[in-house]
Computed example of a mutant assay.
Amino acid sequence: MSLIHASAVIEDGAILGENVSVGPFAYIGPNVKIGDNTTVATHAVIEGHTTIGKNNRIFPHAAVGTIPQDLKFAGEHVELIIGDNNTIREFTLLNPGTKGGGSVTRIGNGNLLMGYVHLGHDVILGDNCILANGATLAGHVELGNHVVIGGLTPVHQFVHIGDYAMIGGASALSQDIPPFCLAEGNRANLRGLNLTGLRRAMGREDINALKSAYRELFEEGKPLQEVAQRLFESTSSEKVKQLCEFIMTSKRGIPFTRSKTNEDK
């Protein structure tokens, strides 16, 4: 049984699961599907071809599934797909995909999107990510799992951010951030590993392997791609392989300050 306030507007064609709650003056469009036990609060708007999983909480004034902010969009079929157990706070703006980007924006499970977060068209968001207030992801951005993005941080289109990475608040990010790393600054730059997050997620052996790899990759002044290739081929650590593979396949480059070698001094 769903709990629908009398002032809410549910268009014909919308599909609501069991125990869905829809608050006063909320709007749900005709092509929306909402899974069991999801809550849609007052004045939230859910439009477009939007599929929402189970146990999600959508807070007041969220705009979910409105058309992409792309001048090339001409009304073609595009989608927004949201998994389970996500929290979508006040005034969030979540757009569907575009034809040029695969036509789908996809959000995984267990994510926290705080107030005023924006996910642009064709964004891919993994599981258990935290985006603080005002974080803004442009089109085609991809996040892995367990990523943390600080408040008021804009992320440039096509940027990739790996698993367990953390981006400091009020950073401007225009390049890829490898998994397990920490970046911050007005023009975000690598500052080391995201040790706080790693200690919550993995054992000492993996962390030590990542520390050693990070030093070789970013602190010894050697060509990054060559070091990544060598480490990938020689290491037995799956975490280090993941880090190196990300670097070798990055299209936008990695923002780090190269250490000076003796030749530079």
Results as ranks from 00 to 15, higher is better:
residue 5 H to Q: 13
residue 5 H to A: 15
residue 15 I to P: 00
residue 18 E to R: 15
residue 19 N to D: 15
residue 26 A to Y: 13
residue 33 K to Q: 15
residue 43 H to S: 08
residue 44 A to K: 07
residue 47 E to D: 07
residue 47 E to W: 04
residue 53 G to C: 11
residue 55 N to F: 10
residue 57 R to G: 03
residue 57 R to H: 14
residue 59 F to S: 10
residue 59 F to C: 07
residue 61 H to P: 01
residue 62 A to M: 12
residue 63 A to S: 15
residue 65 G to M: 06
residue 70 D to I: 10
residue 73 F to S: 06
residue 73 F to Y: 15
residue 75 G to W: 03
residue 76 E to I: 05
residue 82 I to E: 02
residue 85 N to M: 03
residue 88 I to N: 09
residue 90 E to K: 15
residue 95 N to W: 04
residue 97 G to I: 02
residue 98 T to I: 05
residue 106 R to I: 13
residue 108 G to N: 10
residue 108 G to L: 11
residue 111 N to V: 06
residue 115 G to R: 02
residue 115 G to E: 11
residue 115 G to S: 14
residue 120 G to L: 00
residue 122 D to V: 00
residue 126 G to D: 08
residue 129 C to L: 05
residue 131 L to Y: 01
residue 134 G to H: 10
residue 136 T to L: 15
residue 137 L to E: 06
residue 139 G to N: 03
residue 139 G to S: 04
residue 140 H to E: 02
residue 146 H to S: 08
residue 147 V to Q: 07
residue 157 Q to H: 04
residue 160 H to T: 12
residue 164 Y to T: 00
residue 167 I to Y: 07
residue 167 I to A: 14
residue 168 G to S: 02
residue 172 A to C: 12
residue 175 Q to K: 14
residue 177 I to Y: 13
residue 178 P to N: 08
residue 183 A to V: 07
residue 187 R to Y: 11
residue 197 G to Q: 13
residue 200 R to A: 14
residue 201 A to E: 07
residue 206 D to Q: 15
residue 207 I to H: 07
residue 209 A to N: 05
residue 216 E to M: 09
residue 217 L to K: 01
residue 218 F to W: 06
residue 225 Q to H: 07
residue 237 S to I: 04
residue 245 E to A: 12
residue 247 I to H: 08
residue 253 G to Q: 12
residue 254 I to D: 08
residue 259 S to F: 03
residue 263 E to P: 01
residue 264 D to T: 09
residue 265 K to V: 02
